[in-house]
Design a protein around this nucleic acid. Sequence first.
DNA 1: CGTTTCTACGTACGCTGTACCTAGTGAGGG
DNA 2: CCCTCACTAGGTACAGCGTACGTAGAAACG
Lengths: 261, 261
Amino acid sequence: MPSSEQPSSKTPSSSTSSTPSTSPAAAPTPGESPELIWLRPERTGRGPRPAHSRTSIAAAAIVIADAEGLDAVSMRRVAAALGAGTMSLYNYVPKKEHLLDLMLDAVAGEYDYSGLTPTGDCRADLRRLAHEQLAALRRHPWVPTLVIARPGLGPNALRYTEHFLAVTEPSGLDGTARLEALALLTGFVCQFAQYERTAAAGAKWQADLAGYLGRAAASGEFPHLAAAFATTGAAADSPDAVFDRSLDRVITAALAPVGTA
Amino acid sequence: MPSSEQPSSKTPSSSTSSTPSTSPAAAPTPGESPELIWLRPERTGRGPRPAHSRTSIAAAAIVIADAEGLDAVSMRRVAAALGAGTMSLYNYVPKKEHLLDLMLDAVAGEYDYSGLTPTGDCRADLRRLAHEQLAALRRHPWVPTLVIARPGLGPNALRYTEHFLAVTEPSGLDGTARLEALALLTGFVCQFAQYERTAAAGAKWQADLAGYLGRAAASGEFPHLAAAFATTGAAADSPDAVFDRSLDRVITAALAPVGTA
DNA sequence: CGTTTCTACGTACGCTGTACCTAGTGAGGG
DNA sequence: CCCTCACTAGGTACAGCGTACGTAGAAACG
């Protein structure tokens, strides 16, 4: 909802793999039209062939979001990018929310699990997975905002979940604990990416904040905060160092056996 | 951005304390108009007395957001709720984003630290703080969506930070590590609240999702996921149990000494 | 060869944030 | 004292949003 977008780098590996045939959807619409777009069949087979696809629509929307931020993603903009009339989009996507779902799942489809499949070392696998995830979020800085609002779980997200469960199998935790671990870890990565994003957003904002915090610290009302800033101010670790440090902690927390605190 | 709002319980302890005098803002506008609303003085002293205040505006907006969701918070709605003209709001708030900032900080002002001040037991203090936070987020389900988009740091958020730093002082961690711990913990609580919210959102959605996951599991494409659901399906722990369980892990991770993984 | 069902898309409505402009008010300086 | 000028309140207007609805035409099925 807020603006303050930086252009961000173009998506280099925008493969957006979609597995068109094997996705677990495609039931013939049970009762009414389902709320989840993944339960709506993409094609029913009758009439003229559609000129576009969910995948291409999501890709177009992602290009816009990467370049100009989420606010720039409007039905009109996406339709125009596809060379289609605005209302034609509604033949593919019942509501804009569903377009956002498609975008999120397309990003989830960018992961390449081939480089990080088996090894028995749970921690190392998770570390690599988290780094892959962080890279994706850096490519698409609008994802954290969206993913916290909509749990999603499209076919590509399912594949991600499956991979996570496979990787954490040697941990000895049961399914529930491992799903909670997944939530913990992806939440952390999203949060970190978001932090990075706002940190890099604008020099003005940054300067204003620094001034504000400085004045707050100087007011004497916040002694601990002042102390913390006194020790921090000079250092300013590299983002990746901070990420790795916290990531290790989060992995530890996520993999801790249930009884342990 | 998405709809799917449940009414949620009305805010019972909507004190919205604001500390009107001692806030660390009120510098006479350095160069241009600052991006942070906390750096803009609320009153300059000249002209007629304003009919409203930032606090009352934020309170009105919060009532709307609690009752009808974030989407219902429009400048027109808030102004109408205050009995003011729409454009009059812009005398108090330069942009809508800043109204959202005010709302967030007002929620941060609901915490009552009197019941949870000193004890040397870091873990217990953090546990209580997290529970207080979760309660606030349950009262105001729109907060997580907002807080991930805007780091905020208004005067009440500063007070919260100060309290957190005070509570974690006996941990022996330095300021940086404790601020990272803060981010980790509040991120977790927000994420959990958000999860709870979408879980409670709609039976239809829930049913659709269950059906979808069931079909996914049955497809044989996701063996680990199927296994996880087989073990989980029956149990379904109480939300608070899940929260406490994960909370303990997160606290452990947050307080782990730096070198440790 | 209908008939039926889909696709494409223009128009229109109610809503949004907010730029700009007009009045009026009340404290401060002369 | 009054004048002045910074401030407040609020109306009007505009571009843009999501999307309901309706029309026109094309492709597949019986």
